[in-house]
Every structure is written in C-alpha cells, then in structure tokens.
Write a protein that binds this DNA or RNA. Structure first.
Length: 949
RNA sequence: GCCCCCGUAGCCCAAUUGGCAGAGGCACACGACUCAAAAUCGUGCAAGUGUGAGUUCGAGUCUCACCGGGGGCACCA
C-alpha cells in the first residue's frame, strides 16, 4: 500500500494525494454547478446561454436508499453512465444526468420498524449517507434535479398523476385514454347507451357514478387478489413468485376476495406488446415482457351442453374437428349445472373417480383440488379429473363429447374451459390416453413423426362437414376459414387473450403515497381537487402494519392509516358545502414513484406542472431525424439490472402511455434505449462448520484456500454482509482513490457482463494512473515536466490511432477497451519519454483529456497544472486526424494453405496484383512452391495473402 | 421439458465482425533501485479458443450435435 511514508517521493500519486485532489475537485464542481444542465424554459433555464439542440438524457435505475450503504457492486452502472455522460458532455452535448431515490416502500418501512424510528428519519439519513458515498465517486450529477419519491413536493405530483388516471377511461375505438368527462357527455347526449338501456337522466346519482366508475383506468374491484398475511398487505401479480410467495420477504400468498384498487393496464396490453418493436432494448427483456403480457390470438367457441353453453378459448380453432372431450376448471361456475344425477349407461370406470354418482365424484375432486397449492399443481403433472356425467355437442360436426373437470385447466386463464384436442395437444393427449378417450388427428404429422400429439405445421385432415372443408389447408388458412364459419353460424368468434391482469395498486402499509381519494356517504370514491394536493401522510402512533401468521389465509388486511381516525374522518367542502368524508386508508405501491421520475428529473422545481411540455419535448420528445421515423422518444440511455423486467419497466411504460394519451407528454415511451449492466460478484469462504469467514483474510495456496491455517471452501455469488465478503467504495477510495476505483471497475470487462471482484487487481489501475501522473508531474519536486517538443511521426500515429479508437469505444459503452487503449498509449509514452527530461505537451494533454470521462479528478488536476484555468468537463475532446490513421506501408502475412509462412511489406496503396506479385516473389514462398504453380491466390486488401497449393 | 445468452493463457478480459489468436490488467519469473524489504521501474513467460463434426482458400467468429455455466418460461388451452 502506498501511504506516503518517507521513502515515497513527496509528489507521487498515492491514495492520500488522490484523496486530496478528489475532494478539491468535488468541491469545485459543486461550487461552480459544473453539472447543471440548462432547460429550454422555466426555473432551470439559462437566459444568457445558447441551448445546444444536441442533448443527451441518461439515467440510472432509481436506487432504494438502504441502511447498509453501498458496496462496490452498486455503483458499477452509475460509473458507466457517468463515463458515458462525461464523454458526451466533452463533445458538446447538453447532458442531463442526475440520481434520485426510490425511498418509499416496504424495505424502508421494515428497516424503520427494526430501528424503531420514523421511516422519514431513517430514509433521510440513508439518503444523506448514500449521497456522501456517491459524491466521493465523482459522479457528475446535476444535484438540483435529484429528487426522492418521499419528498412531499414529489409525491404531490404522483398523486396528481393518479388523479389523471382516475379521471380517464379507455376509448376502444380511438385506442387511447380520454378524460372521463368525455364519457359522461356521451352518456348524457345518448351517443353511448347505458348498460341496462335506460336513459341517462333516469339513473340515480349513485347509479350514474357506478356506471362511470366502472370505466375508470383506476377503479375499485372486489376480486381475488394476492394477500400475504406475513407482510400484512396485498401485492400485485408481478410481485408473486412462480411458487406462490411474495417476492419481498418470501411469505406465502393467498388468493382472497378483497375490495382493492386496480389499474387498468390490460387496456394497454396490445400497445405494450406492439411498441416493444420501437424500443432499443435487450431482446431478453422484450421477451420477458411479451411472455408476461402473454397475448394469444385464437377464438372463443361455444359448445351446447343441455340447456347451457360452454364457452372455450382456443388458439387452435383449426383443430376443432379433433375435439373429443371437454374440460372445465374445477372452480368453473357451470360445473354444478353440468353435474348429472347419475352416471350415464356404460360410463368408463376410470372416469368416475370411484364414486357412486357424478355429484360425489365432482364434490370429492373439487375438494381435493382446492387443497392443492399452486406448487403442488405445478409439480404433479400427472393428469387427474372426473367426468361430470354430461355431454356437450361439437358445433362443427354434432358429435356428443363428454365433459370433464380437471385441474390442468385453470380458471384464471381464458374462459376456464377448454375443448380437448389430444391429436394436437400433448396435455390433452396425456389425459386422453389415461382416461381412454378418442384421439383424432386433424393435422397431418410430418414424415417420420413418431411423437404423440403433433403440434407442428401441416395440412389439415379429417376436417369436413356439409358446408365446410379445411382439409389440405395449412394451419393459418384453416384458422381463418374456421373462424369465418364459426362467426357466420353464431358458434363463436376470433378473439385475443392475455395473461396480463390488471395491476393491483393498493398496499396496506404506512410508508407510501396516500390516495388522494375520499368516500362520501354512499361509499363512492371522490377525487380530491387538485388544489388540495399534496395529501400528506399523517403521523401515527404505530406506523408498522398489522402482520399475521404467514399461513393464516383467513386474516384480513388492517392498514395502519385506518388507525389515524382524526385524519380519516374529515369535513371538506368539495363544491356543495362542508360535508363529512372518509379518507382512503391504503397507500400506493412502491412502483408508483418510479413510474414517472424521469419526467420530474426534467423539471424538478416546477410548481405549476409535473413537467413543462417544452422541457419534456426537448429532453424526451421523438427525434425522427436521429432515430428514425418510428422513434417513440424517451430518454436516451437507461441503465440498470435485469430484475425489473416486468415490474417497474412495464408499469412505467403504462403510466407514460396514459400521460401521452392525455396530451401531457410528447413521447410515447419513457425509455428509448435500455441497457442491462452485469453484476459484480464475489467469492465467499465457508469453514468446515459451514460458517462464513472474512473473505479478505483468506489466503490462497496452490488453488486451495486457508483462513487462519484452516482450509476453507470457496463459493461464488453475491456480495453480502452475511457472506462476509463486502467491499465498499469507501474502502476503495481510502486505499486507492476514487479515480483508481472507477478505472478498475470499468476495466474489469464489458458493462453488461457479470464478473468477480478482485481487490488485488485494483493495483493495476493505480499503477497506470501513477505512470500517467509521473509523465506530467515530477514526483520529487512536484514541478510540471512537459515540453513543447514536436511529436515524431510515430508519436502522431500512436496518438491519433488511440483517439479514434477511444472515441468509438466511449460512444459504444466499451469502457474496458477504451481504458486498455489509454494504458497502451501511456505505456508507449512512458517508454519513449519516461526517462527523458520532459513529456511533449502535445501528448500529455490529449492523454489527460481522454482519461477525463473515466477518471475525472486526476484529469482535472493535471489539466489545471498544465495551465488551463477552466474545467475540462466541457471538453475539448481530442479529434483524430485522418492523415495519421493511414499507413504508408502494410505488412502482409503470407499464408500457404491457411498457415502463415512468410511476410512481405508493400506500399499501402499497392494494387492486388502488386501484392500478389510481391507475395509470390518472396523467397520462402518460392521455396514452398518448388517451381509449381499455385492453384489459387487470394489477396485480401490490407489483410493478408493466401496461396493455395 | 421448451427458449435465450456465455465458454479464448493460472485469473479478469481483447481480437477491425470470416483474414496473422493478444490490446490491457492481475499473478508468476528475472533484472534495476535498496543494507534489506515494500513500493516503483524494466524485461520476460504463458492458451491454439469447452468437445466433436461440417461449410470455406481461410473459423474464436458461420452451421449442426454434445458437455459445462448463467438466465427466462413452464399444465396459459
């Protein structure tokens, strides 16, 4: 460790010196507002400054300010974005980069509960600590724009947007959201019929409200939701893991009917899928969103069953002729009506479940199914079910087919009932073979197919009735033909199904945005007028929610706000005189604040609007000239982990689209380009008892690991307190300096790749910066050691090649290779000038400038010492001169049958023939040819020559 | 089970997108400095690209199969 002991030269770039330099420049930047980006209009506009039209809006995913502070994994993305932002600032762009805090939500509250203090106190202390840590990294944030979702002035606008959504409905014809007042007008003037056909004027006040409320984009529904007793709150579908537990806390989740706020995200399902095409996002995330929305096109088909009709959804209506039985989900509402009194004559024993009557069989099966958890149903894929004793009629051919109930059909998807086509569906095949049901192939399997159900493409077979034949048609044509036939005969229609469900938007917790809603004496929800926003959280005695035994499915949520009776019971004048109202006691989910924060970054101090339209247009509006005619707009680069693929990223797109529909923003999408950073992982070590030992005290010998002499086992994964392998940026700054840390972190590999942390490797970055420093500053005296010497031809070529490469690397987020090129140039300069009196200024300056995006403090310091009074944050970034990039001569490797055998050097502008002639004249090649003629000679200009014998 | 991504020196990573496998860093060895060590500086060492086939004049790069690692989906009709 270099710690400035007496043997170290006084002006060496040690950690201590780096620390002084870093603090000085951090102060300078803060004092000068160096990273303040001007807006076109409003409080953050700058009158005297020309606003560059060339802008860049970059953003990191909103961090949650945790009590534990940062470890070295957290700032990976921040440093990457900062480096990119700094490069763009240096080439003249107006760059908006800041970082706010997603400070509401369960973790903040749980932490506050643990420490026994008010969530706001804890949250604010955590934010202050995180700001300190981030400042020490030298991130170029416009701190005026840093917001926290818990700021009252911020959540005022979260509530305002909620009311915008509340006061909107989805117009299916125009395919966009519109103000609810437009809908009311349609009912009033009769353009739109009321649900029961009565004139609008005859409906009571409450009836009208109920009609209107049923159309709102956020509405109260009494439907099954995910109740987590251990958390004391309901959670959204997106927050439930595949094995039926809460993502937060890993508590069991139960389906329970409750009155809850829902957001009508399903109205946007098509646009959320289709507009993915417009986005420059990783394919992986797009796929995850597509899967989650789960759009499938198909048909609803009605089968007569006695005096009832069973409606099924199918994506394969073309296989209708192959339907040999039907299945209802056990919970399907028609099950009771369809359960026969006794088994029909000759019922197969396998179908009865051993029961004497269908009634018993059905009751037994339903009871068993209800007892199975989601996980059991998933794990046990053995098909089970019982016959209801009833038959349905296949509308295409009049065949009577038996109706079963089975738990492989889920009530939650489609209509909760299917037509079973074992010939083309493996699940149906499995069920049919177990229960001895018929199998009819309606698609000709491909040659040599020896599987069971055939789900591939092929011509239809066995599919004719009196006025329809699908035989010979491909799957797509057959689908179209059968849907037309079904629609013509009234048996069904083409339709689209989605897996996506409406977003459950309420939480029974304390630390979140209160709903700006009150209830009148009829229990109807009423929006607070805008001038009563913000509605602030009340102080309560006990802000922790009531939690229950995690397994207690029968418990009921008890929101903490309900206990604040003085706040809940309120008298307000909402236009018709003072009246008593009751406030909503739910709070919004954590995702609410992060649905729109990019918009507030743009205009953080605007008190009139959530964002000024002109500022939004400048920073986020579509720019077809740069991004193509279909550019949806949005910020220019959004960097974060992959874990928010279907939560934050879906919700934020949804809100943004609502705001777009209502004319509040000009961009269709919030995030034009998304980039998923990798993670920094770490080794952890476990001793023979299974306990973790401090990773930084483990020693490696011959590939084995020892702690206090005892052998320990190496594990690889996350950094975590309990794993005793945390490395903090604070420790890195103290031991090496923030610039060294930044450089090392960026040089570890491409930003999108996960890689293991290795503290011992950091010294490489430190040595590089020390060498560079030494080229400019005399380590003994601190004097500048640069000269005005002319650069040699070799110097110029190396320099300009580096400039060209580094520019490209920075622009493409390849910070690891940019760093390597800088080291390469630095090593060259060291070799040539390190031992001389001085380094040519014409080499030192561009080197310093090119380093600045990665290591801003040392670059500023050297730039300053080189005699420049102003910051280099605004450039200039060196420009490569083409004339130094072209070589006079080129050395061609000569391959013989693909193996390099010799080399020739020819003029760079030599023609193919000249190169070939030179290659064939080479003595080693002549020897290899031994007088014979080559079969072929391939000359790749500028690359190589290959002689084929 | 299905789909996607990744396997290059002991380790982290490059490779102009089909053209000489090596840019950079760590580790290691040797040398310089030092009474010595650390730090620093210099020099050097190292894999034929997970395995096997194929396409090609030429494959780390393209195709197929397999092995290993990571991720997503999973009775969604």
């Amino acid at each position: 460790m270099t710690d400035g002991t007496e043997t170290t030269p006084a002006h060496r770039y040690t950690a201590a010196l780096a620390g002084q330099i870093e603090r000085r420049w951090q102060d300078y930047w803060a004092d000068h507002g160096t990273y303040h980006a001007p807006n076109p209009v409003g409080p953050l506009a700058e009158q005297d400054k020309q606003l560059p039209s060339d802008k860049l809006f970059v953003q990191d995913m909103f961090p949650y300010p945790s009590g534990g502070g940062l470890h070295v994994g957290h700032p990976l993305g921040y440093i990457g974005v900062d480096t990119f932002a700094r490069f763009n600032r240096m080439i003249g762009r107006n760059v908006l980069h800041t970082l706010g805090y997603d400070a509401f939500g369960l973790p903040a509250e749980q932490y506050a509960v643990q420490t026994g203090t008010h969530p706001r106190t804890t949250t604010e202390a955590n934010i202050a600590n995180m700001r300190r840590q981030l400042r020490a990294l030298g991130l170029g944030h416009d701190e005026r724009r840093s917001i926290a979702t818990t700021d009252v002035e911020y959540y005022r606008w979260t509530q305002w947007i909620f009311l915008q959504i509340f006061n909107s409905y989805y117009d299916e014809k125009q395919d966009r959201a519109r103000p609810i007042a437009d809908l009311e007008k349609e009912y009033e003037d009769g353009t739109r019929a009321t649900p029961d056909g009565r004139p609008w004027s005859e409906l009571s006040r409450v009836e009208r409200r109920e009609v209107i409320d049923s159309h709102r984009l956020v509405y109260i529904s009494d439907a099954p939701v995910n109740w987590a007793p251990g958390l004391g709150t309901v959670v959204a579908n997106e927050e439930v893991t595949p094995d039926g537990r809460s993502e937060r806390g890993n508590f069991p989740v139960f389906r329970k009917n409750l009155r809850q706020w829902m957001m009508r995200i399903t109205s946007y399902a098509d646009r959320l899928v289709d507009d993915l095409e417009l986005l420059d996002w990783p394919e992986q995330i797009k796929t995850m969103q597509r899967n989650w929305i789960g759009r499938s096109r198909g048909a609803n088909v009605r089968f007569a069953a006695g005096d009832a009709h069973i409606e099924v959804f199918t994506t394969r209506p073309d296989t209708l002729f192959g339907a040999t039985y039907m299945v209802l989900a056990p919970e399907h509402p028609l099950v009771e009506r369809l359960t026969a009194n006794e088994w029909p004559e000759g019922t197969d024993e396998r179908w009865t479940g051993g029961a004497a009557t269908p009634g018993e069989a059905v009751a037994d099966y339903r009871r068993e199914a209800s007892r199975k958890s989601e996980l059991d149903r998933q794990e046990n894929k053995e098909k089970t079910g019982v016959f209801t004793g009833s038959f349905a009629v296949n509308p295409v051919n009049g065949e009577r087919i038996p109706v079963f109930i089975a738990d492989y059909v889920l009530m939650g998807y489609g209509t909760g009932a299917i037509m079973a086509v074992p010939g083309q569906d493996q699940r149906d095949w499995d069920f049919a073979t177990k229960f001895g049901l018929g199998i009819i192939r309606t698609v000709q399997p491909s040659e040599g197919f020896d599987g069971e159900a055939f789900t591939g493409e092929g011509p239809a077979i066995n599919s004719t009735n009196e006025d329809l034949s699908l035989n010979g048609m491909g799957v797509e044509d057959a689908k179209k033909a059968i849907i037309a036939w079904l629609e013509e005969h009234g048996h069904g229609e083409g339709t689209v199904q989605y897996k996506l469900r409406d977003w459950l938007f309420a939480r029974q917790r304390y630390w979140g945005e209160p709903f700006p809603i009150v209830y009148d004496e009829d229990g109807l929800p009423i929006a607070l007028p805008e001038d009563q926003l913000p509605l602030e959280l009340p102080d309560v005695e006990d802000y922790s929610p009531k939690t229950f035994d995690p397994e207690d499915a029968d418990s009921e949520p008890q929101p903490p706000l309900a206990k604040a009776t003085d706040w809940v019971e309120v008298t307000l004048d909402l236009g018709d005189g003072p009246k008593k109202y009751r406030r909503d006691t739910n709070v919004m989910p954590q995702w609410a604040g992060s649905c729109w924060y990019q918009l507030r970054y743009i205009d953080p101090t605007n008190t009139e609007r959530f964002v000024d339209p002109e500022n939004e247009k400048y920073w986020m509006g579509p720019r077809p000239a740069e991004h193509g005619v279909n550019d949806p707009g949005g910020l220019d680069l959004y960097v974060g982990g992959v874990e928010h693929a279907v939560l934050h990223l879906l919700y934020a797109r949804f809100w943004h689209k609502v705001l777009f529909d209502l004319g509040h923003v000009s961009s269709k999408e919030p995030y034009r380009k998304l980039f998923n950073q990798g993670y920094i992982q770490a080794y952890a070590y476990v001793d023979s008892r299974g306990f973790y030992v401090p990773a930084d005290e483990v020693e490696e010998t011959d590939g084995r690991f020892f702690y206090n002499g005892e052998e320990v086992r190496q594990e690889y994964g996350k950094m975590g307190k309990s794993l005793k392998n945390i490395v903090t940026p604070d420790a890195m700054a103290e031991n090496y300096g923030a610039d060294t840390f930044r450089f090392y972190e960026m040089s570890m590999g491409p930003l999108e790749i996960s890689r293991p942390w290795a503290t011992k490797d950091v010294v490489g970055a430190q040595r590089f910066l020390q060498r560079l420093w030494r080229l400019v500053v005399d380590e003994e005296t601190g004097a500048l050691r640069v000269s005005d010497a002319e650069l040699t031809d070799d110097d110029l070529r190396r320099l300009h090649k580096t400039i060209a490469g580094v520019r490209e690397d920075y622009a493409e987020l390849r910070f690891n290779t940019a760093g390597a090129k800088l080291i390469e140039l630095n090593n060259y300069v060291t070799k040539v000038y390190g031992a001389t009196q001085a380094t040519p200024r014409a080499l030192a300056e561009p080197l310093v400038l090119m380093l600045a995006p990665l290591c801003p403090h040392i670059a500023e310091e050297l730039w300053h010492r080189l005699g420049h009074p102003d910051t280099l944050v605004y450039g200039p970034f060196p420009q490569a001169d083409e004339k130094y990039l072209v070589e006079d001569t080129v050395e061609y490797p000569i391959q013989v049958n693909g193996k390099v055998r010799s080399r020739v050097t020819v003029a760079a502008d030599a023609g193919k023939d000249d190169v070939q002639a030179a290659a064939l004249a080479d003595e080693k090649i002549v020897a290899l040819l031994a007088g014979g003629e080559p079969r072929k000679v391939i000359v790749v200009p500028g690359r190589l020559v290959n002689v084929v014998l």
